[in-house]
Design a protein around this nucleic acid. Sequence first.
DNA 1: CGGCGAATGTAGCCATGGCTACATCTTTTG
DNA 2: CAAAAGATGTAGCCATGGCTACATTCGCCG
Lengths: 153, 153
Amino acid sequence: MTGLPPEPASSPGPEPTPEAESPDRFAQARSAQSVALIEDYVELIGDLIAEQGEARITDIAQRLGVAHPTVTKAVARLKREGLANSRPYRGVFLTEAGAALAEKVRTRHRTLVSLLVALGVPSDTAELDAEGMEHHVSDVTLAAFEAYLAARD
Amino acid sequence: MTGLPPEPASSPGPEPTPEAESPDRFAQARSAQSVALIEDYVELIGDLIAEQGEARITDIAQRLGVAHPTVTKAVARLKREGLANSRPYRGVFLTEAGAALAEKVRTRHRTLVSLLVALGVPSDTAELDAEGMEHHVSDVTLAAFEAYLAARD
DNA sequence: CGGCGAATGTAGCCATGGCTACATCTTTTG
DNA sequence: CAAAAGATGTAGCCATGGCTACATTCGCCG
């Protein structure tokens, strides 16, 4: 959906985008949507490997609530981006980069949920909302969340 | 991108989706992406009307950083959903429902930014992150944010 | 070790959101 | 008031994420 072939969609580093001011914030929020999927997959694959020792296409599909070909496509993309690898009929594995990303995502997710709960959000709602929000939490904001949670104790 | 023709994608009402438990949270987060666009458009149109008395396709396109045909399509969708109306070569206007949604979105946005700032996030980062996060903040969570902000004073 | 059921892979379709190119209508302006 | 400039509309293409249908391959049993 990004439809932005000329845009390399670089890493989540804070790129101030030197010019203009309005359009970019929307553009960024929207292109992040593409990142969201990748993050979900990587995190889930990490979870499955941790839980069951392997991540099978079918399991991923079931957990995400999508059909298996959808997962196959997504995994192909993860491989393209160097986050995972797999061999036909064997499971899916994370590369070092993938594992690192998964860990980062998982941490961020936990932090966000903790924050929401700390602010009085019921934990099930916190989980639900965090699932959508987390992909848009920048490192700076995440740090602020951690600081708040740490100070609060 | 939703690709869910059989899913009417009803109004933002809390539909608990009676069965299953894992897949849905992802599905919900993802289908919310479609809502995000609508919300952005409605909010922006509201802003433009407030600022300049009218919302022109070109202005919307420029603010969102997309080409004008993209906006034309989106506006067609808003009209389909009863959130806006327009006549060729005249501007775009919000229906009552559209204006209500715009107001809700704007309020939520402000609340989220305030919260982030209150937690120590720099205001420019808060604005940027909020743009992406806001569409995933449920009413329950929003209420918690408001309560926190109110109590904090 | 032959089969059968489950898991994967592949092909091909749909919808959406973006874009470019080109046609038209409006609005300025000389 | 006609022409140029600017704003919209329309057509048609691309990529992505989903899905269904059909073809293979694996693995477990009998």
